[in-house]
């Protein structure tokens, strides 16, 4: 048992992968908390796909892939904001149009290259093999920046997410905070790209935060739990991937999904099964029955 837990740590690339996924899980959980609360999962999915042309251009020209992806994400998020100002194009429509368009452009650019096949798959589904020490440093710096900015603007982002009319009247610039949030989201997506791929990164944003929401009514507890579940899903997924030769991205996402269903069924206050178990225990314990009056009512209640 101990051996199977320690085995993967013998190899430097797996050490890198473990450290990277924990960092990404923590950052994605924290940002994901606000993705879930603001109900902008579709936007997150769109950004994850829309960075594709940036990746492709960086790949073809030999530039930095993370920078390429980030620039594409910022362009697309500004584009969505601008196009949805037209009252005949709602936000979801603008996201739909731009996200598929940008994704198709990325695929077109990628497939125009002779060596696309292997690389396309690794961008779509992620690969733990390629995390170098340099990548690890970049991921750590980006994650630290994302978390620091989120902490610094936590009140503004919370107020803008909770009550926009009040936020505006309190002097908060909605557009600016929306864009700031989108940039943090884009950075998180770009960071997770290499490990889990752009199709599955959405799961690291949404699923741990959704799991955390089932367990608490407190924002800061939700943020901490979402980060913990993100990191935990990453660790479990990597072990599964190592021992059963499953694609790492898929294993990580399945681990996160399993945690979600565990919370959905067994969350102390909101779980589907927990109240029934509690009810059954309550019924079976004689001391809880207490004295019964003549009408059969429990006097102790």
């Amino acid at each position: 048992m101990i051996d199977s837990l320690l085995d993967p740590w013998q190899l430097p690339f797996m050490q890198h992968a473990f450290i990277a996924i924990v960092i990404i899980g923590v950052a994605a959980g924290a940002i994901g908390t606000f993705v879930v609360l603001r109900g902008v999962g579709f936007l997150g999915d769109a950004l994850a796909h829309a960075i594709f042309p940036g990746l492709a251009i960086a790949f073809i020209t030999g530039g930095n892939i993370m920078v390429g992806a980030f620039v594409a994400a910022v362009i697309v998020s500004l584009g969505i904001g601008t196009i949805s100002q037209n009252r005949r194009v709602n936000n979801d429509t603008a996201i739909g149009v731009l996200f598929v368009g940008a994704f198709a452009l990325g695929i077109a650019l990628m497939t125009s290259q002779a060596t696309f096949q292997r690389d396309l798959t690794s961008f779509l589904f992620g690969s733990v093999l390629g995390v170098t020490r340099d990548d690890l440093e970049t991921i750590a710096i980006v994650a630290a920046a994302v978390l620091a900015i989120l902490y610094w603007f936590r009140r503004e982002i919370t107020i803008v997410s909770f009550d926009r009319a009040f936020a505006e009247a309190a002097g908060l610039h909605l557009w600016r905070y929306d864009q700031l949030f989108l940039i943090l989201l884009a950075l998180t997506i770009v960071m997770g790209l290499q490990m889990v791929g752009n199709v599955l990164i959405l799961a690291l944003l949404i699923t741990p935060a959704a799991t955390a929401r089932l367990l608490t009514e407190r924002l800061w507890v939700m943020t901490v739990l979402a980060s913990l579940f993100g990191a935990l899903s990453g660790m479990i997924g990597l072990y599964v991937s190592w021992h059963w030769q499953v694609a790492s991205g898929a294993a990580i996402v399945l681990a996160a999904t399993a945690l979600f269903f565990a919370a959905y069924l067994f969350a102390p206050a909101s779980g589907v099964i927990t109240p029934r178990i509690r009810h059954a225990l309550h019924q079976s314990r004689p001391e809880h029955r207490g004295p019964v009056d003549i009408s059969g009512e429990h006097l102790s209640r």
Binding site: T158, D163, A165, A169, A170, L219
Partner: peptide
Amino acid sequence: PVADVTYVPQRSGADWSFPIS
């Protein structure tokens, strides 16, 4: 917005499922 002028918006605009006390 002026700091001395406080606005109380309509209740329906807020997200009441938000996890805060």
